[in-house]
Write a protein that binds this DNA or RNA. Structure first.
Lengths: 185, 185
DNA sequence: GTTAGCATGTAAGGAGTTACATGATTTT
DNA sequence: AAAATCATGTAACTCCTTACATGCTAAC
């Protein structure tokens, strides 16, 4: 019913692009793919699969049903595979180098599928992400220097650690951008 | 109406504990306090303030209204201040050294208010957070070694960077725990 | 034969955002 | 007097989780 269009949809399409999978297995791959960043529950995954079926992006395949008698209404594994339309949708989502690709929640997934993303889109996403983080550094540092109320020691330490984390990610992005540039030759 | 009991409530109570503030200013302090971790919009803040008023944790003060004629129904700044009950509630929330204090979303806030938290609660939260992260490291590494399908280069790099980030936070926690220990003498 | 893990699903609800709507105050 | 910023608020909506409910399959 909803159009979703979030991290989950992209992840599912991407994983099914590699090979057909059933929900349970899909979830494990999902949480491996996204690593320490994110995890999804079945309560999100199954409705999402349903919705993708309804939208014609994937189709269900029930291997067990064909093998056994049809009278049993038993539950079985449902293997999902991408349709041609689904593949197209996936490519469209990957081709989007707009802000939605470099925000906190979605950058990870987009990056995970960089292997199937055009080099120029990769570059624009990396640069977008970098300036996003630099903006944030500026904002925090500005707010910090503007602040007159002296902060608690722990609050300060949290701040420091937060800034350092962001700076670290910027360095990581710099490295990646450099590598991408080198590979263009 | 809802009980909320989340990051926002704790942050608001903590900030108002330092000094009375109006919503707009409160939001800026909030986003400074939480630094690069989190940001809240007015759409969350104002309903939360209403709810805290209803619960008797804070009270409204409208400075302008008293100064000027009462016939004008004009909008004015609303300064919120903590009640005795609110202070108690804040201390109760700070005294909770359970899992809810060391999850991703809430650890930051709890840490920011460590200056007002008992030393033993601080220690239990730091240790809880650390074992939470170590569990995650184990899970990711286990899933990683169990995986037979060779991963995409970019996916691998994302994974590596994610692991490194978590390891870095563990080292930070180790350092903090060491410092806390040293201060106990 | 029972426990543990595989497998699918739904209903209710939490926590927050976005977009909108309005008005006051300060700066240029 | 226009523009920017300060200031408060609401309604609709999104995305996801939790808790529940069910059943299959392998291992011990």
């Amino acid at each position: 019913m909803a159009k979703s269009s979030g991290v989950l949809e992209l992840s599912v399409l991407g994983l099914l692009h590699e090979s057909p999978l059933h929900g349970y297995e899909l979830r494990k791959r999902l949480n491996l793919l996204l690593g320490s960043f994110r995890a999804f529950s079945y309560g999100s995954l199954y409705p999402c699969l349903k919705q993708l079926v309804a939208a014609g992006m994937i189709v269900e395949d029930r291997p067990d049903v064909e093998l056994r008698g049809a009278e049993t209404n038993r539950r079985s594994k449902i293997v999902y595979k991408l349709t041609a339309e689904g593949k197209e949708r996936f490519q469209d989502l990957l081709a989007d180098a707009g802000p939605s690709a470099w925000e906190d929640e979605s950058f990870g997934v987009h990056f995970a599928f960089f292997g199937r993303t055009d080099a120029d889109v990769r570059m624009r996403i990396l640069q977008g992400r970098r300036s996003r983080l630099e903006e944030r550094l500026d904002a925090v540092r500005a707010a910090f220097s503007r602040t007159r109320t002296r902060l608690d020691d722990y609050t300060l330490e949290l701040q420091r650690h937060g800034l350092e984390s962001v700076e670290r990610e910027v360095r990581w992005l710099n490295e990646l951008i450099r590598t991408e540039d080198a590979q263009r030759e």
